[in-house]
Amino acid sequence: MLAAEVGGQRRFEVEADTVGSALRSLPVANLVFDERGELRRLVNVYVDGVDVREQAGMETGLSGGEEIRLVAAIAGG
């Protein structure tokens, strides 16, 4: 669904110091974050395969070259 919102584009290269600033620069930022700026509950974010909720969340630092993946959580039966 996110890709469909941006004409099918699935990858973006951005420059950012933190995961939060990287995601907020995306054209789908208002789908990833709610109206209070919080990461939506069922959106999972991985930096090089590690869930940011196990790290510093949106403050997780980036040094360059990391791959951030957005994955809709498995919810429901």
Binding site: L2, L31, A73, A75
Partner: peptide
């Protein structure tokens, strides 16, 4: 969307793009 929340879409080309 239960994942991405509540919004509004608009199309000017009969649904080709939104």
């Amino acid at each position: 969307s239960f994942v991405y929340g509540a919004t509004v879409h608009r199309s000017e080309d009969r649904g080709e793009t939104w």
